[in-house]
Computed example of a mutant assay.
Amino acid sequence: MGKSESYLIEFISSGKALKVTAVDPESGTEASIVGDPKMSRDALSKLAVQKLLYVMNKAQNDQDDDRPGILV
């Protein structure tokens, strides 16, 4: 799962909040944040992409962990 240089970004306004979704076009993985619509779209996009990268890295690490048993 490589890191793409471009992501799809969607903005949805809902009352006093703005939902921002970032999607990796290669894997279809997506992550969303809810932010203040007064913030710049660039700043909100960067936050959504950071969360997307976190989600993708976590998924990759979970796949790499093939140890049997339950983590406590």
Results as ranks from 00 to 15, higher is better:
19 K>A: 13
27 S>K: 02
62 D>E: 15
27 S>D: 03
10 E>T: 15
12 I>D: 11
66 D>K: 15
55 V>L: 09
11 F>L: 06
69 G>K: 05
64 D>I: 01
29 T>G: 00
10 E>R: 14
9 I>D: 06
43 A>I: 06
47 L>N: 08
37 P>M: 08
50 Q>K: 13
61 N>K: 14
58 K>G: 00
52 L>M: 09
13 S>C: 01
61 N>E: 15
11 F>P: 00
6 S>A: 11
5 E>S: 14
30 E>K: 14
36 D>R: 08
19 K>F: 04
69 G>F: 08
42 D>K: 13
47 L>W: 02
11 F>S: 03
52 L>R: 04
35 G>L: 04
70 I>Q: 12
54 Y>R: 11
18 L>T: 05
41 R>Y: 06
36 D>F: 07
35 G>N: 06
40 S>H: 03
24 D>I: 05
2 G>P: 15
37 P>Y: 08
9 I>G: 03
19 K>E: 12
34 V>G: 00
63 Q>D: 10
16 K>Y: 06
35 G>P: 01
20 V>S: 03
25 P>F: 11
50 Q>Y: 01
32 S>I: 00
42 D>H: 09
7 Y>E: 10
14 S>W: 04
64 D>N: 12
28 G>Q: 08
16 K>Q: 12
41 R>L: 11
25 P>N: 09
55 V>M: 10
72 V>N: 14
39 M>F: 09
20 V>N: 01
67 R>C: 03
72 V>W: 09
61 N>G: 02
31 A>M: 08
18 L>W: 05
58 K>V: 02
32 S>F: 04
66 D>G: 03
17 A>P: 00
71 L>D: 14
58 K>L: 11
56 M>N: 02
36 D>C: 05
69 G>Y: 08
29 T>Q: 09
14 S>V: 10
64 D>K: 14
60 Q>F: 11
46 K>L: 09
55 V>N: 07
22 A>D: 07
60 Q>Y: 11
29 T>N: 07
60 Q>E: 15
68 P>S: 11
14 S>H: 13
7 Y>L: 06
27 S>G: 06
72 V>K: 13
14 S>G: 03
42 D>S: 13
36 D>S: 09
35 G>H: 07
34 V>Q: 09
10 E>F: 05
26 E>W: 03
41 R>F: 05
38 K>I: 02
31 A>D: 08
33 I>N: 05
32 S>A: 15
28 G>L: 09
30 E>W: 06
65 D>V: 03
28 G>N: 07
47 L>F: 01
61 N>W: 04
9 I>Q: 07
31 A>Q: 11
66 D>F: 07
2 G>M: 13
70 I>K: 13
27 S>H: 02
1 M>G: 14
71 L>E: 14
49 V>D: 02
45 S>T: 15
70 I>S: 07
38 K>T: 13
9 I>Y: 07
20 V>I: 15
15 G>Q: 08
19 K>N: 07
9 I>M: 06
18 L>G: 03
43 A>M: 12
12 I>Y: 01
61 N>R: 14
44 L>I: 10
5 E>Y: 02
66 D>M: 09
9 I>P: 02
24 D>R: 05
2 G>L: 14
51 K>V: 12
2 G>K: 14
19 K>M: 12
56 M>Q: 15
63 Q>F: 08
59 A>C: 01
71 L>S: 13
72 V>H: 12
44 L>G: 05
